[in-house]
Write a protein that binds this DNA or RNA. Sequence first.
DNA 1: GATTTTGGGTGTAAAATTAACACTCATTTT
DNA 2: AAAATGAGTGTTAATTTTACACCCAAAATC
Lengths: 238, 238
Amino acid sequence: MPRPGRPGRIYRAVVAYYSKYPKFHVAVDCIVFAVKEGRLCMLLVKRDFEPEKGKWSLIGGFTRDTESVDAAAKRVLRELTGLKNVYMQQVGAFGDIDRDPGERVVSVAYFALLNYDDVDHAAVEESGAKWVEVDEIPPLGFDHPRMIVKAREEMRRRIFSEPLVFRLLPEMFTLTQVQNLVEAVVGEPLDKRNFRKRLCDNPCIAATESFDKSLSRRGARLYRYLPPVETGNVKFKI
Amino acid sequence: MPRPGRPGRIYRAVVAYYSKYPKFHVAVDCIVFAVKEGRLCMLLVKRDFEPEKGKWSLIGGFTRDTESVDAAAKRVLRELTGLKNVYMQQVGAFGDIDRDPGERVVSVAYFALLNYDDVDHAAVEESGAKWVEVDEIPPLGFDHPRMIVKAREEMRRRIFSEPLVFRLLPEMFTLTQVQNLVEAVVGEPLDKRNFRKRLCDNPCIAATESFDKSLSRRGARLYRYLPPVETGNVKFKI
DNA sequence: GATTTTGGGTGTAAAATTAACACTCATTTT
DNA sequence: AAAATGAGTGTTAATTTTACACCCAAAATC
């Protein structure tokens, strides 16, 4: 596949050298997180095609000639959720010989964090995808379980030092929502008072005058996340 | 490339489906760290072949049909240093369209930590590779600078919570050696007394009766690292 | 209109960890 | 004998982390 703008002689020499080596399909797989009805969920699809037909799997696709691998991950996610500008983070490359029972495929896994309310639910429905609670993951095909484990580890490692949570919550949120989410990520309960204290010490959290009355008689104050530009790039710390 | 043991009909259908998508070369690049003469160094090669001929680059190679991507990284490193069982850690996949000026290549980067004394220096010499101090990296081709930045970030993040340093040091080492190395990784000086206190509090460090007299009149006590099995799998913390 | 119910909200004290800091030691060289 | 070199060592103040239990506001019920 010669591309324009290459010097001919050198280019042919390089291709001749490279061509001794095999090529593989390069897939992307997305571990998509969102909070649905207060619970941390992941997006899975039931495969109605081979290989691994009938099993659940992560959403994925193949990288095209015309896009970077990172761009392929973004595209796959956009095709499914209708969302652009989603926070995505590479989890790693998975390259075992037999990881795909069909053909040799190397896959690069990403995790994505998004706000459930922004999702195009019709598009998700149509592609047979479902939101599944992170603690109720069904058996999955391929090496997807490994990918998920690694994605969750990565998230756990970063949740206290990077403002990841706010990508999963609506623009205005209660402190309880934040705490429930962090607890779901780290997998253990946290002390309410200490958690709120630390969170509110953070200059990137601003109280609003609105209240969420959907859960309690009294109502819970809503907060807003201020991105670093507005707060002087302070280091985030929960 | 049909492989044995596949059910024919399904296999053909999968291949037909997959074949709509392009294949790419899958490379591996290794960021190889070692301590040479007390300084943290990386292994680089001067390329005497296209593309990027004449520039310095990381050591790398292509993944073969017969090996996983991780195994390819191990092989490339073994071919160069003569070492097996080296600690390697994936840094990430790099998949920009034009990252290789020759052809489309997706590369998976790894960092490797090894003890300089174990290296086959003749083999390194022969392949035109050189040890270069991490603060004196020459201009590099491809996207190798980005790979190095990410590898060093990763290392910095883990150095205090995982026993990485001991993979870079000889079996017996002085506390000063450890401190110099950690300082090279984090890029800032550390308090000597606090550092030594923390390090020696660690049950995985054992004092020996030997001394290194090469640097001081007095001599410095040599210590040994005890792997977790011997210490009851305590969490590592410097 | 008093009572119950529900999740929201709040402060302090003890314990643990981290940070700052400067001199002596043992040995060799001069 | 003096100087030079890197090795080694403890204490105190400051900060951070942990543990912990009750009242609040509003609506619903009786």
